[in-house]
Design a protein around this nucleic acid. Structure first.
Length: 308
DNA sequence: GTTCGAGTGACAGAGAATGT
DNA sequence: ACATTCTCTGTCACTCGAAC
């Protein structure tokens, strides 16, 4: 059964890589995952996030293998309901306006169903769920913004290194010459949408979890700020930040609010953090006053506002 | 073939919270 | 007051798959 899911995903990715619109395909993969979970796994309560507020999490289980925790209140468990919601979601994207709750729930369910399948039946494959999230959101963006150019890389051309980086090192003349003539630089991200008319671009790093890589979007934004001042804005899009604690039967939200605030104040400014499932710690006003943390359905609106 | 990036389990140190 | 446990954050090691 995992071969079916993997094959369906591969076909969708292939179409997306070739520049096609793979939204319908990725949503179908989500439905296939949901169907497979109902047929071959048990969906059951796992435990609570300690809060406040307390939040209930469920897991998928098969043959002793447990999935990551998911939120049943955001997860469309019924297959027929999901198919209907997914169809409406795609239609609304085409029209350029989305129902907020539907947007978050469809994305959350599609990605979570895929993750749960991989957690239970192909746990060694760590990278694939993140790629799936990327293909889904990029395909959705392609439908929502047909006029914007879509890439994954931003070339950094002909910018003297001495002018872009802070003068932290007192390099010798030879070293500086070597650095200034290096021209192969490029910022590699998940998704970049650029308006050909205004030249403005939205950079969207897409991550299942930011843990361990949180510095990356800030570093990229900093590079872009010095290479193309005022042109690019970053919108960090994530699903959730949770981890099972099997010792206590609880769910932990893995957050680094101090680090995020520090980077936002002193490294570079992201336009915002966007979550399907905003971690409790990130929803608090002390962090919100430093960086905006919003539900995922506002992502496309905010991107549109930036690129014009 | 090799290299590289993404995601995850595990763990360590600091400091806070709790127990005795 | 002291000891123990918990929480928060940062880091390492590892695997897989994509890219070269």
């Amino acid at each position: 059964m995992m071969t079916d899911i993997a094959a369906a995903f591969l076909a969708a990715k292939k179409k997306y890589d070739k520049g096609g619109n793979a939204l319908a395909e990725t949503l179908s993969v989500g439905a296939l995952c949901l169907e497979t979970l109902h047929r071959s796994a048990t969906l059951r309560r796992f435990g609570m996030f300690s809060g406040p507020p307390k939040i209930e999490y469920w897991v998928a289980e098969d043959g002793g293998a447990l999935s990551r925790p998911y939120r049943p209140d955001l997860f469309i468990a019924d297959l027929n309901t999901f198919r209907e919601e997914a169809r409406d979601f795609a239609e609304e994207l085409r029209l350029g306006k989305s129902d907020p709750a539907r947007f978050d729930r469809v994305v959350y369910t599609t990605v979570s169903a895929f993750c749960l399948c991989f957690d239970v039946w192909k746990p060694k494959s760590r990278k694939t769920p993140g790629t799936f999230f990327e293909v889904l959101m990029a395909s959705a963006a392609r439908v929502r913004f047909p006029k914007l150019a879509m890439t994954k890389h931003i070339p950094i051309k002909d910018i003297p290194v001495a002018a872009t980086a802070d003068a932290l090192l007192d390099v010798t003349g030879d070293e500086r010459d070597a650095a200034e003539t290096f021209t192969g630089d490029s910022v590699s991200t998940d998704l970049v949408l650029t308006n050909p008319e205004t030249g403005k671009g939205a950079v969207v790093p897409l991550k299942i979890t930011t843990r361990e890589r949180i510095v990356q979007p800030f570093a990229h934004q900093r590079i872009l700020d010095s290479a193309y001042p005022g042109q690019f804005a970053s919108f960090l899009a994530c699903i959730s930040e949770v981890q099972r604690d099997d010792n206590t039967g609880t769910v932990k939200q893995i957050c680094v609010p101090g680090t995020v605030a520090l980077f936002q104040k002193h490294l570079s400014k992201l336009n915002g953090l966007y979550y399907c499932d905003i971690p409790v710690r990130y929803a608090r006003p002390d962090l919100g006053s430093v960086i905006e943390v919003k539900p995922l359905h506002l992502l496309f609106e905010d991107m549109a506002a930036h690129v014009g």
